[in-house]
Design a protein around this nucleic acid. Sequence first.
RNA 1: GGGCCCAUCGUCUAGCCUGGUCCAGGACACCUCCCUUUCAAGGAGGACACAUGGGUUCGAAUCCCAUUGGGCUCACCA
Length: 551
Amino acid sequence: MSSNSNKIVTRFAPSPSGNLHVGGARTALFCWAFAKGRGGTFVLRIEDTDQKRSSDAASIGFVKDLLWLGIDWDEGPVFEGCGGGDRGPYFQAQRLDTYRKYFDLLIASGKAYYAFETTEELASLRDAAKAENKPFRYTGQAARALSAEKVAEFLAVGKPAVIRFHTPQSPITICDEILGDAIIPAGETDDFVIRKADGFPTYHFAVVVDDELMGVTHVLRAQEHFNNSAKHIVLQDALGFRRPIYGHLPLIFNPDGSKMSKRDKDKVLRKAIAERGMTSPPANTVDPVLFSAWIKDKNTQLDLACASSLASALGVILPEINVDDFRRSGYLPEVICNFLSLNGWSPGGDLEKFDREFLKSHFDLARVVKTPAKFDRSKLLAFNLHALQAMPREEFVAKVADHGRTFHPEFMSRVTDAQFRSLCDASQERSKTLDDLFRTNGFITVADDVLEWDTKAVKKFLHGATPSGCEHLKALSKILSQCGDWSVQGLEAAIKPYVESEAGGNLGSIAQPLRVALCGSTVSPPIFDTLAILGKASSLKRIDRCVASQA
RNA sequence: GGGCCCAUCGUCUAGCCUGGUCCAGGACACCUCCCUUUCAAGGAGGACACAUGGGUUCGAAUCCCAUUGGGCUCACCA
């Protein structure tokens, strides 16, 4: 390893989760770009030292999100060609033996000590401090006053104990490449726990040991960790480790300034339910027992399937929070990366659109912004639109089809290849996401004899004017039934003369009634495309059925 | 409340380090108009910011101080 001693190593070190949050995604992206752009190594390490949270099977489901974004790791858990490395294991729960050695070292040198206060005792001390509006600092005088014999005795009888680090009483300077230096006054950092009663290290301890052993040179993480750095620095000094270079990234918020949280989805649902004064779930959405439990406890979260069905029943849109939410909504991974980069970093000048390769070769800490960013979905949407528009048609078709197979299999099974292709042709310039086509063209997958017509649209476009839309439809039915070339051009040629003679050349007065008859609503691709996509038989059936229904 | 950090259009940001070329540039959103067969998309315009107050200086968005505002953090969670 000495030969790469000056090699840059960054790491992304999340706790286990099935989903990658956009904030985490940006941290990962920056760590990745920083290391990769400098010929360094990007390490993925799983911080699973909380036994309460790490038990589920899908614990690192988020790796699929990383790969979808194009973020691969050199060292870490092995998954689809990524990971491996000889500085593992990369799950902290599997490194307990490693940590033991360093705990012993600190205990032996008197830099750490056993403490026996219970969680309850500490909580009441904390409450007391809070009542006086004073910050609580664990001084450890009582614990440190314990004789070695007493400690041995307590441990021998199995009295629950944590190990605390005895923080030196001197100011700590945090050097940060992004924020500059900050001095944390002496006494601010107290004697924090480094080993929990269950024998697991706390985050602070595991991070410090692993960063050292894994050769991490640059620690890039969210700004919420800034104060933690003081703890990490005193530990590094005590253990004789080198100090990595720190860079604390600005936070990403919701547009309203609140923290982006996975609970935001539940928040939207709860609000909608409260507004409607509902006490039981809409039919076929969520199990009523589950529902009432969820309503009662604001801290519980609905799983994605339940939340989505509830959302669609309520007609509300769930906010995208996780990377997978954005994938589901039809965003392109390269757009997500581009946009995420712009939240907290910029290449300077007027340049905004760039790819991962560019980020890799240009990302630097000096240009990271210090201020928190609010995540602007409408700008993201615009970026996605631009990327979609710039795409060659074949690529667009392939990507939409792929998206459809994953998220709208039913739709895909109900359209022919030709229909799908025409739909893409008619949709690319107006698609903001890969999902738009499926959301706005539901009329295609509805059977001809069950299509329903929007009452407002019917009133406005089938009646009202003279001649009425219905009369136009009757005439068009005849014309179209004789149309031999059912292509966009052929249809246009067939209908245009009628528009000229019967509607004063105003296509709108013909197109809208047609659209209503064909789609049930006033929104669809351009009318000749719509006819072409539906096909002759279907179109005529729909027109005739519509006319008959209005008789 | 203590500690730390931050402060340019509604939003993301450029400019700040190395004061003058900035009556502050770009993008998204917004407004107006045009195009038009719906929804979009597209085209052309427009409005919109250096938090406040003091300094320093011939000159400050840029340097200093204070105020105000915002954020993070104070766990046997990470």
